[in-house]
């Protein structure tokens, strides 16, 4: 059975009197260990699909089964617990908490988990090590470069050992070289921990690094790519 199964997903947004169809019936399955890119132009529905998979938005129609669980039926608190347990997020604009250090940012999601301070710190050190930022834990986000911030964000997504990391345009705000480094880190983590990565992009270089490439246009999947 697939880790994630999305069936007939539709998402409508009402903007005043206008109704925008962001997703027009998407069927998709994601398997354990995938490293998948969602490609497509702006407005094709990539972010909306990631939001629905990440349980931070509710589909207008359709069902998402995560490991057999219909996540649409969960309450707000259950969804929060579900995300804490299973999903990590990496955002285009990094979304680090500016008043916390890199170390504290990475530690923050662990406050949800029943871990001792020592266990938390060990995990944070491992995560920062994995993204190559072990030495910069005491720095605040505004003291880091864009690439370093995104690496902190990846460490934050990784530290809770989620089964899936969803990354919305993770390299869009980075130069080509740094973007490539970020992708390599993600690839390495995917192989090392078998963490599923699903990321959106419209960058050809990034698409080329994905093991599975899904093309989207106008709220539909136009090519799902071969599953690994």
């Amino acid at each position: 059975m697939s880790l994630i199964q999305a069936q007939s997903l539709k998402k409508l947004y009402r903007l005043g009197k206008t109704v925008v169809e962001a997703l027009r019936g998407v069927d998709l399955s994601i398997e354990e260990g995938e490293f998948t890119a969602l490609a497509g132009p702006s407005g094709s529905g990539k972010t909306t699909l990631l939001n629905l998979l990440g349980c931070i938005e509710v589909p207008t129609e359709g069902v998402i089964l995560f490991d057999g669980i219909d996540i649409g039926r969960l309450t707000a608190s259950q969804k929060a617990d579900f995300r804490a347990e299973n999903i990590g997020f990496v955002f285009q604009t990094f979304n680090l908490i500016p008043v916390l250090t890199a170390f504290e940012n990475v530690e923050f999601p662990l406050l949800k988990k029943n871990l001792s301070r020592t266990q938390r710190h060990k995990r944070v050190e491992e995560a920062l090590e994995a993204v190559g930022l072990a030495q910069l834990g005491r720095h605040r986000p505004d003291e880091l470069s864009g690439g370093q911030r995104q690496r902190v964000a990846i460490a934050r997504a990784l530290v809770g050992r989620p089964r899936v990391i969803l990354a919305d345009e993770p390299t869009a705000n980075l130069d080509r070289q740094t973007g490539l480094q970020i992708l390599e880190i993600m690839q390495d983590l995917n192989q090392r921990y078998r963490t599923v990565f699903v990321f959106s992009t419209h960058d050809t270089m990034v698409m080329n690094l994905a093991r599975r490439l899904i093309h989207m246009r106008d709220g539909r999947l136009i090519a799902k790519g071969p599953q690994p």
């Binding site: 990440g54 931070i56 707000a76 608190s77 929060a80 617990d81 579900f82 995300r83 804490a84 347990e85 999903i87 997020f89 955002f91 604009t93 979304n95 908490i97 500016p98 923050f108 999601p109 949800k112 934050r156 809770g160």
Partner: peptide, 16 residues
Amino acid sequence: TREIGTIMALGFRPSE
């Protein structure tokens, strides 16, 4: 607002 959205996306409940 965006930061609060991030905190909730990370798995924190509305009550938290």
